[in-house]
Simulated assay, not measured.
Amino acid sequence: MIRIIMLGAPGSGKGTQTQLLSKYFCIPFISAGEILRQEIKKNEKNKNYIKSKINKGKLVKNSFIIKIIKKRIQKKIYLNGFILDGFPRTIKQAESLKNQIKVKYIIHLKVNLENIINRIEGRLIHEPSGRTYHETLNPPQKKNIDDITGELLTKRKDDNKEIIITRLKEYEIYTKPLIKWFKEEKSKNKIKYLEVNSNTSINNIHKEIIKKLNIQ
């Protein structure tokens, strides 16, 4: 059973690498960001709260996202393995996940600021599936069109430089301590914590992840 958590700053390539690993290992992935965007569309009660946070580059409350992710993980499709993208983002979220389910592999994608801004500003999204592309680094076969469905790709409203900076500040505050927490868990609970240089090409990053995972 393969259970993986993808860590990294916004623009580190978590979404792209999660999709590649999902195909490689034939296991589903769970994108916290996409789940929240789905909630905006279907849940009128939470719509304004989630939008206000996402559009400002802020994180939603721990209790809110924990409840949603726990509910999703319980679905049968995830019983034989999954990849988590965008969750956990805080120590409290990680502790809550640990109490429910054991995840063996933590992949931390490390990337510099210049690449972060370039990747996010050029990102294209297929909203229904969460598939991600990039205008130059990972373009669709047809401009602004999803390769699989033929539907129009869009840009996220929070994919602009001002909000990127806010999101990076949130990352520094909440996720950097989480990385330290995972490193401590590595020695205590025999999880595999892997750091990968995410400043290279998509293909090279993917190869490096597979090599470091070393799953037979």
Rank of each mutant, 00 (worst) to 15 (best):
G150D: 09
R131Y: 06
H134K: 03
T132N: 13
E121Q: 13
K143V: 11
I165R: 13
E121H: 06
N115A: 02
D147C: 02
I148E: 08
K104H: 10
N99D: 14
N118L: 14
H126R: 00
V111C: 12
L109K: 06
K102V: 11
L97W: 01
P139A: 00
N99C: 09
E135Y: 08
N115E: 13
L97V: 04
P140S: 07
E127L: 15
R131I: 11
T136E: 15
E114L: 11
L113E: 15
D158Q: 10
P139D: 02
K98C: 11
H108E: 13
D146Y: 01
T132A: 14
D158T: 04
I163A: 04
T136L: 14
K169Y: 06
R167F: 07
T166M: 12
D146H: 00
K104V: 00
K143D: 14
N160R: 02
K102H: 12
L168S: 09
Q100D: 13
L152S: 14
D158H: 05
K102L: 15
E121S: 13
V111Y: 02
Q141C: 14
D159W: 03
I145E: 01
N144V: 07
K155V: 09
D146G: 02
P128N: 07
I120P: 00
T166Q: 14
I125P: 00
E151D: 13
K155P: 05
K102Y: 15
E121T: 15
L168D: 05
P128A: 05
K110V: 12
L168W: 05
I101H: 00
P140T: 04
N160K: 06
K110G: 01
E135A: 10
H134G: 05
K98F: 14
G122R: 03
G150E: 03
D146P: 05
L152E: 13
N118A: 12
V111A: 06
D147E: 03
G122E: 13
D146M: 01
D147S: 04
E151M: 10
T149R: 04
P128H: 05
T166V: 15
N118E: 15
